[in-house]
Design a protein around this nucleic acid. Structure first.
Lengths: 156, 156
DNA sequence: GTCGGATTGTTCGATGTCGAAGTATACTGC
DNA sequence: GCAGTATACTTCGACATCGAACAATCCGAC
């Protein structure tokens, strides 16, 4: 027989909220990824990199890591694939030869200029099931939660 | 130079809320996964499967798919790894020979009984940066968003 | 009964993701 | 200037994840 598992009301509430958060994020990003792949042959990570370069200009991979919240080895992989697709280029930085500055190619810029507005439109459409006040409140709660979590255990 | 990109206020609000949602989910699950791996040598997906079996009892992979919101091929992979680790077993179902019923082994039950309370405690701790009312509101907003998104485009 | 379509699961290839280990380069104290 | 440490990136191995293509089985129409 399946197992009983009550837990304190505090735990039940926290688990319930967490599960809903995780599922909402999975569902929404899942649907966005689907369209991204079908319509533009891009993954979410690739879009994230192109978007960062588009809005903030060329930057070293180490900075990309911080912007997209991914590990260094992951950024290497994603940039590899974007480079193979001809959408970005790695350039040397004279004053520090460890650094590889990632920049959009002409083709990359063309792609992100076309895709970003469409993507933003889809996000807006999906989030539109919440009122503006609800979107603001969701943003506030997520920001509070995310910041506190990132700040927790800086020593581990 | 980096590109200008205003967008309507409605778009800005939606994108902002979405980015915060995605980042909060990434940050929280990232920290949980870290502990899960270090302390119990389990991935998030593996925990999800063990948890479902623990709370709901043995079930076919098709049902597991629906519970954890992942593709069929993914469930095959995760169950493969859990089976290799000796935590679950695949059994035949007499009345339908296509089906593989997944069930916990004794060892699997032992593991999830030990890990689940610790995991629940960590979730509660992290979510504790929000008040109870905030957790309830976050849950409500995420549920509303998730359900509407899942319901959108059932035909595609 | 049999055939065609649906459902269940697996396999395959591509990508993402991490952490650990390795390489190259920069920096700091002395 | 040299040694030791820190930083930037790559490589490697493991797992997750998807969709497409495939195999086995079931089921419904006839």
């Amino acid at each position: 027989m399946p197992s009983r598992h009550s837990g304190s009301p505090r735990e039940v509430l926290a688990l319930d909220a967490f599960v809903k958060l995780a599922r909402a994020a999975t569902t929404v990003t899942g649907r966005l990824n689907q369209r991204l792949q079908q319509d533009h042959d891009l993954t979410e990570s690739q879009l994230g990199v192109l978007e960062a370069l588009f809005h903030l200009g060329p930057m070293p991979q180490s900075e990309l890591c911080r912007k997209i919240l991914r590990s260094g080895s992951n950024v290497t992989t994603v940039v590899d694939n974007l480079e193979r697709a001809g959408l970005v280029r790695r350039a040397a930085q004279d004053d520090d030869r460890r650094v590889r500055v990632v920049q959009l190619t002409t083709e990359g810029r063309r792609v992100i200029e076309r895709v970003f507005p469409l993507h933003a439109g889809r996000v807006t459409e999906l989030m539109g099931t919440l009122t503006r006040d609800e979107q603001r409140e969701l943003g506030r709660l997520c920001r509070k939660l995310g910041l506190a979590t990132a700040a927790a255990d800086p020593e581990d």
